[in-house]
């Protein structure tokens, strides 16, 4: 069992050292949130403030978003998935490798608070504590202990890179990888349904979208200065929540992250209408794996699959 307190202390030590030695101007990590089971991104530029940094099973956000477009030397706390997004952004020249110090933390999964909220029937959780493999939640009229492994985020259940593939400083011991994680079970389930069933499913889910763009804004790969949604000359797709426009927004966003998405799960987690966006993003991962034998965010030398080609690429979809 890994000692969470040790990791937290080590993170603070590392941050203090980096800031004191002026190796970085800013450290981005997690701090305790204002509600149970929540953490918030934390920006430390003073070595005296490092005790704000926290590490626990609710450190779910993908912080690599905050590196884009910032011209400072930054130290960043990164789990496996976060480090992979950083790699993708480095290969796409959005982050300067020389300017970032990646503090990698091997992660065995973060907790999905929405699953826990559903488990207590929507009653308000007033206190929560994760110790080892147990989650204790307390509310006005209840107190429950739950096994952590049943309440991990969906993206963690199929994670095959729990150890950051790249980092400058590793905090904590490596965790064993789950090589048997078959990540595409949900996608295969949907693929087995008829096109009509799939259409009915997606129109129902995406019909709830209110076009808040939380999914786009939280994704580290959506860094375009002008998003296609805001383009008016030409006006590609409308901004209303007309079903056609909404579905196309999600289709196009997922096309844009195809081959780059590392399945950090942030988009699904932040959606206020609880749409399962991973049903779409995971499909692009599957397409890219099966067609081009590619997995995003593993090596700094890789070339994104949609930015290259092979003469012998499969073309079974072409009419003979």
């Amino acid at each position: 069992m890994r000692n969470i307190e040790n990791i937290e202390d080590s993170i603070r030590e590392v941050a203090r050292k980096l800031l004191n030695e002026k190796k970085v101007e800013l450290v981005i990590g997690y701090e305790k949130g204002t509600l149970p089971l929540r953490t918030a991104p934390c920006f430390i530029d003073n070595p005296d403030d490092v005790d704000k940094l926290a590490w626990n099973a609710s450190c779910d956000a993908n912080l690599s978003k905050y590196l884009i477009g910032v011209d400072k030397r930054i130290g960043i706390i990164a789990k496996g998935c976060d480090a992979r997004s950083i790699i993708v952004c480095i290969t796409e020249k959005q982050i300067d490798r020389e300017k970032v110090v990646i503090i990698g933390i091997p992660c065995a999964g973060v907790v999905d608070r929405k699953k826990i909220e559903a488990e207590v029937d929507g009653e308000e959780i007033l206190e929560a504590r994760v110790t080892g493999e147990k989650i204790m939640v307390k509310g006005k009229n209840f107190e429950k202990t739950l096994p952590k492994k049943n309440f991990l985020c969906d993206s963690c259940l199929t994670c095959r890179h729990r150890n950051p593939p790249i980092c400058d400083i590793m905090v904590g011991n490596k965790v064993p990888e789950i090589t048997s994680a078959e990540g595409f079970a949900e996608v295969s389930y949907l693929e087995a349904k008829s096109a009509d069933d799939r259409w009915a499913y997606f129109t129902k889910e995406l019909g709830n979208c209110i076009r808040c763009y939380a999914c786009r804004n939280v994704c580290p790969l959506c860094y375009c200065k002008e998003c296609f949604v805001d383009k008016t000359l030409p006006l590609w797709f409308g901004k209303t929540n007309d079903l056609s426009d909404t579905m196309i927004y999600h289709i196009v966003r997922v096309l844009h992250v195809a081959g780059r998405c590392v399945d950090c799960g942030a988009c699904s987690r932040v959606c206020p209408m609880e749409i399962d966006l991973r049903a779409l993003t995971k499909k692009t991962e599957k397409i890219v794996k099966e067609r081009f034998n590619y997995e995003a965010g593993i090596s700094l030398k890789e070339v994104p699959p949609l930015g290259t080609f092979k003469l012998e690429d499969a073309q079974e979809f072409v009419i003979e």
Binding site: P41, C42, F43, C212, A214, V218, V270
Partner: peptide
């Protein structure tokens, strides 16, 4: 404002 991602939620 640093952590705000500028969505509309």
């Amino acid at each position: 404002y640093q952590k705000c991602i500028g969505c509309g939620v």
